[in-house]
């Protein structure tokens, strides 16, 4: 599998990762090499096997219970005011 700079840019955008042009080129080359190795999986006959996990993850009962204290959450927040996380304006540009 060959990854070029444009494909690397597309994936970086999907992953919300800022990468500059040299980093995109480096990433494209490394991903190409790794995916070429991974392409050996195409040789294996998987007839009769599906992609589901071995066991399903059990779910707990949906009862309310105490959560983390708000002050403890605020202590780790990069920006916090009046009980809210502060972020840049989402609508209407800057």
């Amino acid at each position: 599998m060959n990854i070029d700079r444009n494909e690397a840019r597309r994936i970086a955008a999907l992953a919300h990762l800022e990468l500059d042009e040299p980093a995109l080129d480096r990433m494209a080359a490394e991903m190409t090499k790794i995916l070429t190795y991974i392409d050996q999986l195409r040789e294996i006959d998987t007839t009769g096997f599906d992609e589901r996990a071995a066991t399903e993850t059990p779910l707990r009962d949906d009862h309310p219970r105490p959560s983390t204290e708000r002050d403890a959450v605020a202590a780790n927040a990069p920006a916090w005011r009046d009980g809210f996380f502060v972020v840049p304006k989402v609508i209407g540009g800057e």
């Binding site: 919300h16 780790n76 990069p78 996380f85 972020v87 304006k89």
Partner: peptide
């Protein structure tokens, strides 16, 4: 960069954060 951990100082939009 919203709830905990490092947030870029230079980001001016939510996507950039």
């Amino acid at each position: 960069g919203i709830r905990y951990g490092y947030r870029s100082e230079r980001a001016r939009t939510l996507d950039a954060v």
